[in-house]
Simulated scan of single mutants.
Amino acid sequence: MSVVTTYAPEVEERLRGEAGQIISRYPQARSALLPMLHLVQSEDGYVSARGIALCAELLGLTRAEVSAVATFYTQYKRHPNGQYTVGVCTNALCAVMGGDIIYDKVSEHLGIGHDETTEDGVITLEQVECNAACDYAPVVVVNWEFFDNQTPTSAIELVDELRAGRPVTPTRGAATVGTFKEISHVLAGFEDGRADEGVGAGPATLAGLQLSRERGWTAPATDEARGGGAVEGGTVPNPYGSAERPPTTPDDTDPAGKRGPAGEGATAEEGKQ
């Protein structure tokens, strides 16, 4: 199979136009590289060789420099990705709550492992270190939209719905999940008009805020922050008084206290004595 190394003229014209909008947001062109990579990924479904070449040309970078960034971050794919990236969190809290089992069951059900894609090209499965939603563990994300409090059964139903081409509704966020290419375009900095859809933060996330309001807790004032932390009914004193670190205590061999708490500043000759 031949590899297409350039974009069709109309596609390249559109990409260059959008790239120009991205670059204009930064004082230095090379700072636009991260959203630019999302841009070419929104076209190809991964960071392709032609996408790397276009980024390098427009930003005045070498292809090696662009590739170095593209291979560092896991949101950039170096081979064709599925329409939906399903990420199962197996980090500490999600794992304890069943994340490992969910991943194993979904992997078995789909017949693929980490960073592999189903034969129909619909789903790429990922074992994620953290989805940053520990208050709803175990969590699964689909193209970075949250599906909270999952079970093996609900996760399998989720991927079956995706493969059947039926829309799925995240627990929080947009009303439906966009495709990998669509979300990549949003990550490149182009709004899709869906920022205000759905629930932004659920009860578990807001529990601490609600409790603090009910009990009248507020952030400590500047003096309190230096001297101790604010708690209900008063403050916990800093064991070092108002100092931010333990005070230096001079000893007989360092009467001026110039060496610090660990004898810092002693000369090499003094250290031999």
Rank of each mutant, 00 (worst) to 15 (best):
H185E: 03
A188F: 03
N149R: 11
D196E: 12
K181L: 00
T151H: 05
A204D: 12
L206Y: 06
I156N: 01
P170R: 10
R166Q: 11
G189T: 04
G165P: 15
V199R: 08
T151I: 09
R163G: 10
I156P: 02
A175N: 13
S184G: 04
E145N: 12
G178A: 06
F147S: 09
E191P: 15
F190S: 14
T205N: 11
P203W: 03
P167L: 08
A195Y: 07
P152R: 01
F180L: 02
G173S: 08
S184L: 01
R163P: 05
F146I: 13
E161V: 14
L187I: 05
F180G: 02
G208F: 07
A175P: 02
L158T: 07
S184Y: 01
G193M: 05
A204V: 07
N149M: 07
A195S: 12
A164E: 14
T169F: 02
G189K: 08
G208N: 10
H185A: 03
V199H: 00
N149W: 07
T179H: 02
G202A: 00
L209T: 15
G165M: 13
D160R: 12
G173M: 02
P170M: 06
G178S: 11
A204G: 00
P152G: 11
T205D: 10
N149A: 07
G178M: 08
T151F: 05
V199A: 02
I156F: 02
T179A: 00
I183S: 09
L206N: 09
R172N: 13
F190C: 11
V168Q: 04
F146W: 06
F147C: 05
L162K: 04
F180R: 00
T171C: 06
A164I: 11
E161N: 15
P170S: 13
V199W: 00
A201M: 09
L209F: 10
D160P: 03
Q150P: 10
L162G: 05
P170D: 12
G165N: 14
E157R: 14
E191V: 05
G208E: 07
A175D: 11
G208R: 08
A164R: 15
V199D: 02
E145I: 05
P170Q: 05
L187K: 15
I156W: 00
E197I: 03
V177W: 00
I156T: 15
Q150H: 09
A155E: 06
